[in-house]
């Protein structure tokens, strides 16, 4: 008996990984805006499992490795890749890119490139939901690196103190850039840390997407009732920190062992056991590959932003845009003509 839930989750995992592959291709084709591309390959199950457990009104912030979460939440891969390419048609008009992608409509309050930077925002969103009586939860996704950042603990304390509908999700991929977790933290008992602040704590493996989704569903309902919570989901970052990092700081055996914990293979095995045939799998793979190829082509072909758009969105649209440096120079030299004489 093939479970529709298993099939859907598998497709979502596959979409995330294929998307990340296309981000890599975008870079190789010279189409990405910069090299600050942090791929979540190996970390698909935490992203998909939690995103699939969220309700439509829930909101979230992510770290800089958040493509998978946003995609699983329902983002359009075309607009995502266009944003990563720095194009006008991207989610943020080509101003944010991979590390600052957001979408108000899907409740994405922003990816953040300051480690821990987006965590306080979910506390504020939780306060909004509590005061405005919105039955929503706000979720902060961050890596193990942020577990050593002070604002996380200020956030945990306030969320617990005010009983806010907030969930903190640590996607533990074992590395903060090139520093292994045990070189960054003496204690690895993260759940205990959270519990000591008065949060509900939960630890799950990031190998099985169904287990993640189930745990997240349960904990989100508690958070929704004003019992803020913390989830630690363990996984392994298959590749380097960013696109160009070949991870010389870890040995090959470790990488090989780590990559064996592959959430996509795990879910594929489950589907095979349920009776899915290889030819059926191939059809799904082709469908996902086509979707992501189309997105890649769109990102490469869609137009660059106009230079004038640089001055837009600094302040609210009804206000004066910042004046360009060139215009100031012209006014300095030709001000009598432009401004008249007040004497």
């Amino acid at each position: 008996m093939i479970s529709e839930n298993s099939r859907h989750l598998y497709l979502q995992l596959l979409r995330v990984r294929t998307f990340e592959d296309r981000v890599g291709e975008l870079f190789l084709q010279g189409g990405s805006a910069g090299t600050m591309l942090h791929l979540s390959i190996g970390e698909e199950a935490p992203a998909v499992g939690v995103a699939e457990a969220m309700q439509p009104k829930d909101s979230f912030t992510t770290h800089h490795r958040g493509h998978g979460i946003f995609l699983a939440r329902g983002a359009d891969p075309k607009r995502m890749l266009a944003e990563i390419a720095g194009k006008e048609a991207g989610y943020c008009r080509g101003k944010g890119g991979s590390m600052h992608i957001a979408d108000r409509k899907l409740g994405h309050l922003g990816a953040n490139a300051i480690v821990g930077g987006g965590i306080p925002h979910v506390v504020g969103a939780g306060l909004s939901y509590q005061l405005l009586k919105v039955p929503a939860v706000s979720i902060a996704f961050f890596g193990d690196g942020a577990m050593q950042q002070g604002n996380l603990y200020e956030s945990m304390n306030l969320a617990a103190l005010w009983k806010l509908p907030v969930l903190f999700v640590c996607i533990n991929n074992q590395y903060g850039m090139g520093t292994r977790l045990d070189q960054a933290s003496a204690s690895l008992e993260f759940v205990k840390r959270a519990e000591s602040f008065g949060l509900i704590g939960k630890e799950v493996s990031g190998l099985d997407v169904e287990e993640v989704k189930e745990a997240a569903t349960e904990i989100l309902e508690m958070a929704r009732e004003g019992k803020p919570a913390f989830m630690k989901i363990d996984c392994y970052r298959f590749h380097g920190h960013a696109r160009k990092d070949k991870s010389p700081y870890r040995d090959q055996n470790e990488e090989e062992e780590g990559r064996k914990k592959d959430p996509i293979k795990f879910q594929a095995d489950r589907l095979m056991e349920q009776g899915v045939s290889i030819s059926e799998m191939d059809i799904w793979h082709k469908k996902v590959a086509d979707e992501m190829d189309e997105a890649l082509n769109f990102a490469l072909e869609t137009q660059e932003p106009t230079l004038n758009s640089m001055f837009e969105d600094v302040y609210a649209p009804n206000l004066t845009h910042p004046e360009s440096v060139g215009s100031r120079i012209d006014r300095a030299l030709y001000s009598e003509i432009l401004d008249g004489d007040y004497r």
Binding site: L109, P120, H121, V123, G124, A125, L127, Y129, N151, L161
Partner: peptide
């Protein structure tokens, strides 16, 4: 509810204001 004493945690009190402002309040 509307006039809230916070702990002595400046980053979260400003950061929570940012998040609240993004989601419908004027902190």
């Amino acid at each position: 509810d509307w006039v809230r004493d916070t702990p002595i945690s400046e980053e979260i009190l400003v950061g929570a204001a940012v998040g609240a402002a993004m989601t419908g309040l004027r902190p």
